[in-house]
């Protein structure tokens, strides 16, 4: 009888530890704790070029992550990228409608993210709102190309 009891306890402990490990993996290791599901609201932003921005890329304001990119689509009429940003709940009434959206790169080789610079307007974006002021991603090749081009131009002027 006592042997049975010890076995029951050990099996119970085994299962408890196993589920605890699963819980640890999902809470501490993965992004469950930092993402709050489908809540919040969505705003649109149009960019000429989004570089390597991806769905789930962070959206930050003053460096604080306030949402994620939830969808990226291509507008066939205007040839622009339409990026849907899902802003976490708790940040309602915090994005003025003249906010400036830029695509930044974290570090030299890091991933790209959207940084929002708040404007001065007193009306705020709501569900389905659109950010009109945007700045495209910096594509390194383009910058180098422009740099070389301007250097070459300088050279011809001096002569």
């Amino acid at each position: 009888m006592t042997q049975n009891r010890t076995m029951e306890i050990l099996v119970g402990a085994f299962m408890a530890v196993g589920f605890l490990a699963l819980f640890f993996l999902s809470m501490q290791v993965s992004n469950l704790s930092s993402s709050n599901g489908g809540e919040g609201y969505q705003v649109l932003a149009r960019f000429d070029n989004i570089g390597s921005l991806k769905v789930r890329s962070p959206v930050t304001m003053a460096g604080v992550r306030i949402g994620r990119v939830s969808d990226i689509a291509f507008d066939r009429k205007t040839f622009e990228a339409v990026v849907t940003l899902r802003i976490d709940s708790g940040y309602e009434q915090s994005i003025p409608d003249d906010t400036f959206a830029k695509i930044f790169t974290a570090g030299l080789l890091g991933e790209q993210y959207i940084g929002l610079d708040a404007g001065g307007s007193s009306t705020f974006l709501t569900e389905g709102g659109q950010i009109t002021l945007t700045q495209s991603a910096l594509v390194l090749e383009e910058i180098i190309g422009q740099f070389l081009f301007s250097k070459a131009e300088e050279g011809t002027k001096i002569e």
Partner: peptide, 15 residues
Amino acid sequence: VAMPLLAAMFSALGV
């Protein structure tokens, strides 16, 4: 039943 629990323990302790 045991295998996923063991794998979870392995990963958690590995982290």
